[in-house]
Design a protein around this nucleic acid. Structure first.
Lengths: 91, 91
DNA sequence: AATACAATTAACAATTAAGTTAATTGTTAA
DNA sequence: TTAACAATTAACTTAATTGTTAATTGTATT
């Protein structure tokens, strides 16, 4: 389910932009919301999809929930693509 | 539309498997169909999505249409991921 | 306890995606 | 031209995704 979840999560422009925002460092859900025109509920669901894909981690701090990037699962995509390109073995 | 199309195309297991099949070399639509349980029409639509994403190229040869892999658009994903991981500039 | 605030979850509407069968387009060969 | 075959496109159904508003959960403050 790893690669499938990861690619599905990345196949949405809002979710990719959320990841890009988190590149600079952790942000609260509210911080993230302010960058988009969609509602907080919509952003929250996008965050849930990213969390299920393990592309982000969350931790509560008081009444805020901080989200931060986790890029480790991207290795799997890199590997899959590299293999497809034939740099793997039987090229 | 490049990255969006590419990621959307990759976010389906059948389409990824089609690409993997084509890694070994060009195949006809019929050849590809034989590897799946879904109908030829369904495979044909998957091929159309992959073609729109420019992940495959097609050429007709007699009554067969051959499909072959085009991995060049994958560079864009590699770049995007690399940048996200911070190997880009301001890490 | 009551209020306020951050964020998520629930319930629903609208859009998009994926699958099916049936019809159509190309191409070859009788 | 007609028949046969490869493959796509059309029409339709169903399932999944995305968005909205309203209700709920969790935490801090008064």
């Amino acid at each position: 389910m790893g690669l499938q979840n990861t690619l599905r999560a990345l196949a949405d422009p809002i979710r990719r932009e959320i990841l890009s925002l988190l590149k600079a460092g952790p942000l609260t859900a509210g911080d993230i919301c302010r960058h988009f025109t969609v509602t907080a509920a919509a952003v929250s669901r996008h965050l849930a999809v990213l969390r299920e894909a393990d592309l982000i981690r969350d931790r509560r701090e008081g009444k805020f929930i901080y989200y931060e990037l986790n890029t480790s699962v991207l290795e799997e995509i890199m590997f899959w693509i590299t293999e497809l390109k034939g740099d793997g073995d039987d090229a």
